[in-house]
Simulated assay, not measured.
Amino acid sequence: MPDRLLLVDDHPVVRTGCRRLLASAGPYEIMEADTGSRALELCESEPPDAVVLDLGLPDIGGLELLDRLRRAVPDIRVLVFSMHDDPVFAARALEAGARGYVTKNDAPEELVAAVETVLAGGIYLSRDMAREVAVMSFAPNRSPLQGLTARELRVLAELGQGNAIAEIADRLGVSYKTVSNTCTTIKTKLGARSIRELIRIAVEHRVSP
Rank of each mutant, 00 (worst) to 15 (best):
158 E>L: 15
195 I>K: 07
163 N>V: 04
197 E>L: 02
171 R>P: 06
178 T>M: 10
187 K>D: 04
191 G>T: 05
196 R>D: 15
196 R>T: 14
159 L>D: 00
152 E>H: 09
159 L>N: 01
196 R>E: 15
160 G>F: 01
193 R>N: 15
203 V>Q: 10
162 G>H: 03
157 A>P: 04
169 A>K: 01
165 I>G: 01
171 R>K: 15
169 A>P: 08
162 G>V: 12
172 L>I: 13
144 P>Q: 02
153 L>R: 13
192 A>D: 06
199 I>H: 03
160 G>V: 09
199 I>G: 07
175 S>I: 00
198 L>I: 00
169 A>D: 09
204 E>W: 03
167 E>N: 12
142 R>A: 15
158 E>N: 12
153 L>E: 05
201 I>G: 03
147 G>V: 07
174 V>C: 14
150 A>I: 08
200 R>P: 00
174 V>Q: 11
186 I>C: 04
187 K>F: 11
174 V>Y: 06
189 K>Y: 00
170 D>I: 13
146 Q>E: 13
162 G>Y: 04
190 L>D: 00
191 G>C: 06
159 L>H: 02
150 A>D: 12
194 S>V: 01
152 E>Q: 08
203 V>M: 09
150 A>P: 07
178 T>N: 12
151 R>W: 09
168 I>E: 08
183 C>D: 04
164 A>I: 15
203 V>A: 12
158 E>Q: 13
154 R>F: 13
187 K>G: 01
152 E>L: 03
149 T>F: 03
162 G>N: 06
181 N>K: 13
148 L>R: 01
190 L>P: 05
176 Y>E: 12
168 I>R: 04
147 G>R: 10
155 V>P: 00
161 Q>G: 04
201 I>Q: 01
196 R>N: 13
153 L>N: 09
180 S>N: 11
170 D>L: 14
160 G>C: 08
154 R>T: 14
175 S>R: 06
202 A>S: 08
163 N>H: 10
165 I>W: 03
196 R>H: 13
184 T>M: 10
166 A>W: 06
158 E>V: 05
190 L>G: 05
187 K>N: 02
159 L>G: 00
194 S>L: 10
153 L>Y: 05
174 V>E: 15
199 I>T: 07
